[in-house]
Structure formats: structure tokens, C-alpha cells
Amino acid sequence: MSETFHEFVVQRSAALSRTAYLLTGDHQLAEDLLQTALARTYRHWRRIRDGDPEAYARRVMYHQQVSWWRRRRVAERLEPVPAERGGGDHTEDTTLRLSLMAALRRLTPRQRAVVVLRFYEDLTEPQVAEALGCSLGTVKRHGWDAVRRLREIVPDLVERTAARSGR
């Protein structure tokens, strides 16, 4: 049992870690979230290993993040500006990344989860519904509300992203 779980952790930890960071917006919280999700996944490994253990781990991360958010209700924190590094001017990339993270933090936890799973993890709406344990309609509604809210918060984000990717 532990060998197959070890293989799962080795193969999928990086992707799950990125998802955890996008859900929390904080590196330390993301590490805690991933560790909690992997511990719970391990507890149920015999039951889920033949199914989709990654979807199970994502669902655990989402539910745990919502649970932490409900307990904390911490005011929004400003992240420090990254230190300058050599190798060219990355100001525009950094500004875009900080704007996106700040905008994601202003969404509700469920809206953020839908956006992360749908657009970053590139899951279909039915896969997101399964991962979050909700209906397809709920995913569509939260996705629509999240995109509308992001357009209100950072109206030039779409244009900046399109210009950056050359579209």
C-alpha cells in the first residue's frame, strides 16, 4: 500500500502544491494544506487508489481551506514586493502576478476554488463539480460570478494577459 502511495506523492505533489498555493495565496499555508490533504488521502488510500486519488486530494484541500477560512476570517494581507533580481526587467510579469493574486484573494473561497480548478488545473465543469462535491449548476454560477468579480476588481487584467501572451 505505501509504495503506490509513495509513487502518487512523487508524481503529483508538485501539481497539488501549486493548487494549494492558488487556493491559499500563501506558501506556508499551502504546504500545510498539502500535507493535510496527503495525510487524509493516505488514510483512505485502500479505498481510493484505484479511482482518482488526485481528485480526492484536491477535494480534501478545498474543504480544508474553506474550514480554515471560516475559522480565521483574517483581514486581507499585503504581500511584500519581491526583491530585485538580475537578468532583465520582470516588472510587468511581477505586477501581473501580484494583481492576479490580490484579485483571487478578494473572491470567496468557493469562487476561488472554481477559478483555480477550472482555469489553472484545466478541469471541465463536471470534473470541478465532482472535485468540490457540488452540482454542475453551482460550479457554473460560482464560475460566472468569479469571472464577473475579477473583471470588476482588475478590469485591465484580460487585456494585459492577452497582450503578454501575444493574442
Rank of each mutant, 00 (worst) to 15 (best):
L16D: 05
W68L: 04
Q65F: 12
V81G: 02
R97L: 15
V74K: 11
R18Y: 04
R118P: 03
P53D: 02
A30E: 05
L33I: 01
P82V: 02
I48D: 11
V115S: 05
F5P: 01
R73H: 13
R18T: 05
A131V: 13
L22F: 15
S67V: 03
R71V: 03
A39C: 12
W45G: 02
E130A: 15
R105A: 11
R46T: 13
Y56Q: 07
H6W: 09
Q28R: 13
V114L: 08
Q64Y: 10
Q127P: 00
V81A: 13
V10K: 14
E31S: 12
E7M: 06
M101D: 12
R105I: 00
R118T: 06
R59N: 12
A55V: 04
L104P: 01
T95S: 11
E130K: 14
Y62F: 15
D50R: 14
R97Y: 13
Q65P: 00
Y56T: 06
Y21P: 05
V9T: 12
E130Y: 10
T19N: 08
V10D: 09
G133E: 07
A14M: 10
R58W: 09
L132I: 05
T41W: 11
T19W: 06
S13G: 01
V114I: 04
L117N: 10
T124A: 14
P126M: 06
Q35K: 09
L33G: 02
R70C: 01
P109I: 04
R46I: 01
R12V: 01
E54Q: 15
R71H: 07
R40Y: 13
R118C: 02
V114N: 08
M61A: 08
Y56H: 13
R72D: 14
S99R: 14
W69M: 09
D52S: 12
R97E: 07
